[in-house]
Design a protein around this nucleic acid. Structure first.
Ligand SMILES: [Zn+2]
Ligand SMILES: [Zn+2]
Ligand SMILES: [Zn+2]
Ligand SMILES: [Zn+2]
Lengths: 171, 171
DNA sequence: CTTGACCTGTTATGATATTACATACATAGA
DNA sequence: TCTATGTATGTAATATCATAACAGGTCAAG
């Protein structure tokens, strides 16, 4: 059940960014609680497999391949055939609780579950962490270019590869 | 060899856009001529396989999977193992003569070979045609968002799915 | 208790991509 | 000309990613 926690919660106060230092235990617990709320509101069910997949994705701000997820599931006693993982991942993506990263053929937990958002992804090529950035400005720019060609955009894939702050500092 | 043609060429005068009506034979021939020039300038070689792959990609403004390309190559008497296609495609991408479309796991000929450009791709979900749009404005918007998080973008994948002008009209 | 919707498990297969090694070809010295 | 070298191509084998099709289980509405 979505356990409420104080609005001045220090975990929440930290910028909810993958790259910023933050209380990740809180970050993950909060995302799970939100997931419960989202699925309840949608009349869909966060079953044990689905919940476990989300927990696995929430372990850190990275993207995991379907087969990596599957291996973890199998170790936990769930089915170990690809559809088990793919179906749960598909469900989470539909519910807005996870995102697919095209460049990586992999999936990452949503950093803002429950909030309508069209994310752009920032992927560190060194440490492989993934953060969500606001996509709206880029999307608007694309809409303008597309409009010029008479093209009506419905969905966008915006992904950037580069160096996160710490890896940049290290280099 | 890149055969020159008049600067007032009607093919060139038409907007070089996948969605606009244009003299595609000229479009493809010109791209091929530019490819010769680009590879010559780079001291790289547009060998028969590579050239044939480019011709195949240039047949229309769509994206083709590596195995589709491979089937065509095999039919032409070239090797019929995956690396034959993947290597030629990789070469073309490196030379800026083709682009990879992540969403489709497929490749498309570059519409502006020889010109430095960072394209965004507009993919029609109905007729599967692919056009290149100017990515710079969207890229700048992304750079701003990324900069806010301390992330240094090196490369972007900008792809939009939607309806091209004619498919939109048909619907 | 039966029905129907949905979820999970499994088998089998399809689609995409790479590694490793062998062979052929170009071309630049000797 | 004749090798030496780098580069390109061919092929076998394998790795990785993804879906189709069907069987059985769960659960709540009727
Ligand atoms: Zn976190
Ligand atoms: Zn990093
Ligand atoms: Zn054309
Ligand atoms: Zn179309």
């Amino acid at each position: 059940m979505p356990q409420t926690h104080p609005p001045d919660c220090p975990g929440c106060a930290a910028p909810d960014l993958a790259f910023a230092a933050h209380d990740h235990a809180h970050c993950a617990a909060d995302a799970l609680a939100r997931a419960e709320a989202v699925t309840a509101a949608n009349n869909s069910r966060l079953t044990p497999v689905r919940r476990r997949v989300l927990e696995i994705l929430l372990e850190d701000h990275r993207a995991l391949g379907a087969y990596d997820v599957l291996a973890r599931l199998a170790a936990d006693g769930f089915g170990n055939q690809p559809p088990v993982a793919y179906r749960a991942l598909e469900f989470l993506v539909e519910q807005g609780l996870a995102h697919r990263i095209q460049r990586l053929n992999a999936f990452t937990a949503c950093a803002h579950p429950g909030e309508a958002h069209a994310p752009a992804f920032l992927i560190c090529r060194a440490c492989h962490s993934v953060a969500e950035a606001e996509a709206a400005p880029a999307r608007e720019a694309l809409d303008r270019e597309a409009g010029r060609l008479g093209f009506a955009i419905e969905r966008t894939t915006l992904e950037a590869l580069g160096l996160c702050p710490s890896c940049k500092a290290a280099a």
